[in-house]
Amino acid sequence: MINLKAIYVIVLREFKRFFRQRGRLMGTIARPLLWLLIIGSGLSNLVGEEGGLSYRQFMIPGIIGMTILFSSVFSTISVVWDREFGFLREMLVAPISRLTIVLGKLISGTLLSAFQGFILFLLVPLFGFSLDPVEVIQMVLLLILVSLSITSLGLLIASFLNSLEGFNVIMNFMVLPMFFLSGALYPVKALPLFFQYITWINPLSYGVDSFKHVMIGSSGDFGPDFPLAVDLLFLVVFSAVMVLSTSLSFERRQ
């Protein structure tokens, strides 16, 4: 049912493409740094410190979440891309199951996003955080889990779409609201109740929140909004549901 060699080669292909398209790695590093250096500096002067943290430091878990959001979405575009440029047919007529293709795309998208999030995480000492080995390990595991949840959501959407245009429209209507309603730029509890409801169904909220548990930890205004157990539970269940729906959607459609 699942062909490991095929999964391996699908993942390998995505990694080769990632490193061959130089702009992608640059974008990964440049976009979040712009947010932190420019927006972070400006707002830090307005907002002031809270429990020993500057606003810019508060933003860092959110900006890592943003990096994962963008890179996961970009990875899942590859499904639509492959469909539009015909390469998907090469995979669809191979003697492998649809689930194998979905898993290949899921694993490659997850690892690539987690990798990009990790590169950014390695830069946090520049902004006054210290890194200890336990934190690094916790973060790596969380980065993978959060990447998995967002990539699986992106794959589900991509499985319904035929054109890059359609994908762009949907993503523009989803990606930015997901980012703004995730607690990345302000604590969830600072939002009006209606918007808070939306953050509760947004996987990125729980992802960013879990990063806050590791990096900020304290329970002040800048601290996490949900218990860590809730974050983990939501992310695991959400990913499982998405992966299952994506496989079904692929099986049915092609």
């Binding site: 062909n3 060699k5 095929a6 391996y8 080669v9 292909r13 080769k16 493409r17 061959r20 398209q21 440029f85 015909g86 390469f87 047919r89 090469e90 995979m91 007529v93 191979a94 003697p95 492998i96």
Partner: peptide, 29 residues
Amino acid sequence: SIGLVFQEYTLDNDLTAYENLIFHCYLYN
């Protein structure tokens, strides 16, 4: 049992000729 050459090109332009072929071989186990 079948090999296919489609009307439209279905190669990955970002891979080399060899990489496209090895990809295919692994898909066919």
